[in-house]
Computed example of a mutant assay.
Amino acid sequence: MAWVFTEEIRRLNRQGMTFNRMAAACHFARSTSWFNRLVNYDEGNPPPPRVIGDLAAMMGTSRRHVSEMIVEEWYGVRPDDAVSDHLRSLVIALHELDGDDVPVVEQLVKRLRDKCSEKRRLEGELEEARKAFASSSGQVLAGPASVS
Rank of each mutant, 00 (worst) to 15 (best):
W3E: 12
W3P: 03
F5P: 02
E7G: 09
E7K: 15
L12S: 03
N13E: 14
Q15L: 12
G16N: 06
F19P: 00
M22H: 01
M22L: 04
A24T: 03
H27E: 13
H27M: 09
H27I: 05
H27R: 13
F28P: 02
R30D: 00
R30V: 02
S33A: 13
W34P: 00
F35Q: 02
N36L: 09
Y41G: 03
N45Y: 10
P46Q: 03
P48S: 08
D54Y: 02
D54M: 02
A56I: 00
A56R: 04
M58F: 00
T61K: 01
S62E: 05
R63P: 03
R64W: 05
R64C: 05
R64S: 07
R64N: 12
E68N: 13
E68S: 08
V71T: 15
R78D: 13
P79E: 11
P79T: 12
A82P: 06
V83R: 08
S84T: 06
S84D: 04
D85L: 14
H86D: 15
H86L: 14
L90G: 03
V91C: 08
A93G: 10
L94R: 04
L94V: 10
G99V: 13
G99H: 13
E106N: 15
E106T: 15
K115S: 11
C116N: 11
C116V: 12
K119N: 11
E123N: 08
E125T: 09
L126T: 01
A129I: 14
R130W: 12
A132Q: 15
A132Y: 08
F133D: 10
A134K: 00
A134S: 08
L141C: 13
S146V: 14
V147R: 08
